[in-house]
Design a protein around this nucleic acid. Structure first.
Lengths: 158, 158
DNA sequence: ATGTATTTCCTACTTTAGGATGAGCCTAAA
DNA sequence: TTTAGGCTCATCCTAAAGTAGGAAATACAT
């Protein structure tokens, strides 16, 4: 983040699909619930505040996640104004690492297993393995530990 | 877990406190408003769906904004402190790592496999495995990557 | 519009890592 | 001389990592 020029939101369908679908389903479920429970609400058996509070909570976190996804994309755009930035985004492009691969690389360096990375990035373990393999190839590493070491030397990891 | 340097969800008390407080206040305000306007809702003059939908959208964007704010704070914190990369031998003793274990840890951080470490230190792979297991236990890590990450934070690795 | 690159996911397979346990050897301290 | 800690090595087993190859949808640029 922190690019001085406002980058705007970057959405691509592949990564946003689950979010959009989830968002839509949530609204649908909500509407269905309302239809079903309409009488109850009119009779005042269910506290309106509770419903709204729950909805607020859910959508609050959806908003968090939504923004997180877009931030992830934005962070790819290099930050010229902030020289203290440790990561060399030019180097990343030079090596040919994609955005998603770099995401995985960061998680790898945090010491996460493929499964944990999959959970945190909302991917299958298969996908993570694919990314890891590509990372190892592009960084000319035989193991993830070696890839992390190389990446830090190349300043594509903090 | 809470990898502090990685992008994504970053929750610590310091950065989240204003968010939590703000969120709580908003819900409080909402509840108060409901108390005030309770009669209208019971009478069914206002569509419940509309209210909830509006609440959902509001909180959705609040979520967006809060995440945006927290992200900004993270990127500001990044340029704090990139201290010297000196090995803290006191820390090593404190944790209980032996000399040989530290040797292996260093090789691990270089991205070597157990077999390669064995060759470089003139050991059998079995011995290296034993050392690695002890290292993982003493550093409270599940994987070697995690051990490396922890070790660097504890300054027992350059 | 079309071709290239990205992202996602899969199956099947091999290799490496890691856990649990035991044991022999050496050294320094009690 | 026991004892304790450290170093070495082993086996057996499970879990995780990594390879190879394919496939489908999307993204992006020309």
């Amino acid at each position: 983040m922190a690019p001085t020029e406002s980058p705007g939101f970057y959405f691509n369908l592949a990564t946003m699909r689950p979010i959009v679908i989830g968002f839509g389903l949530l609204i649908l479920c909500m509407l269905v619930l309302f239809k079903i429970g309409e009488v109850n609400f009119v009779e005042g058996n269910v506290r309106l505040e509770v419903i709204v509070a729950i909805a607020a909570f859910i959508f609050f976190f959806i908003g968090l996640y939504f923004n997180y996804q877009s931030q992830r994309k934005i962070s790819n755009q290099k930050d010229v104004a902030n020289p203290s930035e440790i990561i060399d985004y030019e180097q990343i492009k030079k090596i040919g690492l994609t955005q998603r691969e770099h995401d995985v690389l960061v998680k790898m360096a945090d010491g996460l297993s493929n499964q944990e990375i999959a959970q945190q990035l909302f991917l299958s373990e298969s996908t993570v393995k694919t990314h890891v393999s590509n990372i190892l190839f592009k960084l000319d590493a035989k193991r993830r530990t070696q890839a992390i070491q190389s990446a830090k030397k190349l300043k594509i990891l903090a």
